[in-house]
Design a protein around this nucleic acid. Structure first.
Lengths: 201, 201
DNA sequence: ACCTGAACACCGTTCAAGT
DNA sequence: ACCTGAACACCGTTCAAGT
């Protein structure tokens, strides 16, 4: 095998697994950005199942243009939440391990509930090999696992708790944030009860 | 006002709030039952957003017949889960308050995750006045509140915990049961961590 | 009282024709 | 390289005609 190791071309990636990239031509970039802005607005207002027709209209482009840039709804969602994920992964937390863990978990919960319905999509990414969020989920799990391990090393959290269980807590609390009553913050309460359950004085 | 207090007639209830009832005519009852059976199968296989066309076909009736018996998807879902809810409400639990509370919570979690997507519908019922699950949610909350209060009276659970928070735990754990990885029971773990967090020795 | 299925509406997705 | 919008498919929902 003397073939050089080339990056995957656009054509080699099936549409379902293709990540959206910002075009080079000026009109393409304008439309791409307008679509993203419209998508964020629509997802925020109607959840992740917002009408794609509506998004295209709001962005002032034809529906085919939307599909040209974002082959699937997930590709659009992923692009619309990419910055928030980067922010979460770069988050600096408190040096005290238990406080730091709590802060990070609450930020992860906020990220996963960016839009109504988003957390289910993200959770898929943890198990589905082909999901666009596989890498992102992996990175989140890794960061969470680090903070968990640090808290365990410091004797602040029970040794038996696993990274997967921490990830489960983030998902469950995010679902609560999306679905609980409007006038009461159940997700933070849930996180605190669990941290009480797994922490040591 | 001398008008007698009559029960609401069919016509007085808007379709969205109408609860399905078993018809009196023999052919109607046959179709009603066949639809329910097909619905349970379809919901179990594809979640609560299963195709209604498919359900009607599987039941061997026209789509109009389905709508005749069940004016909305929620009406069909409610009828398909009515027995399970009754079972939950009639559940006898252990006399030891904390054990009893745990058993009931796990059964409530199982009920709310009967079908993929079901828990979000149920959670709506807790806040939406018009939901078909309003009564059911209220009954669940009442039963949960009873068991919670008993555990608190016995000094086994922190006084500050509220019935709404218990209901939130049930919903969050049910979401996990619907969405977590297939080979790992994250929802029971979550319940146990929370019970650890709120219980007293 | 209940059943049927055509008709309509809505929305996601593709693709041939264009610049 | 990118845009357009008609065309198709799928599915939920209604309703006039029937038994």
């Amino acid at each position: 095998m003397t073939t050089s190791h080339t990056a995957p071309t656009l054509a080699s990636v099936p549409p379902a697994n293709r990540v959206a990239t910002r075009p080079v031509r000026a009109d393409g970039r304008r439309n791409y950005d307008a679509l993203l802005q419209a998508a964020r607005k629509a997802f925020a207002a109607r959840g992740t199942s917002a009408s794609l027709d509506e998004i295209a209209s709001a962005a002032g482009v034809a529906i085919g243009t939307l599909y040209g840039h974002f082959p699937t709804r997930d590709a659009l969602l992923e692009a619309a939440t990419r910055d928030e994920l980067a922010g979460l992964l770069a988050l600096d937390v408190d040096a005290e391990p238990l406080t730091g863990l709590r802060t990070w978990v609450l930020h992860a919960v906020a990220f996963c509930s960016t839009y109504r319905g988003f957390v289910s999509t993200v959770a898929q990414g943890a198990h589905d090999e082909a999901s666009l969020w596989r890498e992102g989920c992996h990175a989140m799990e890794t960061r969470g696992a680090e903070l968990l391990a640090a808290a365990q090393r410091a004797g602040r959290v029970r040794r038996e708790v696993t990274p997967v269980e921490l990830f489960d807590l983030v998902g469950a609390a995010a679902w609560l944030r999306e679905n609980a009553g409007p006038d009461h913050d159940g997700s933070t309460r849930l996180v605190d009860y669990v941290l009480d359950g797994i922490s040591r004085p």
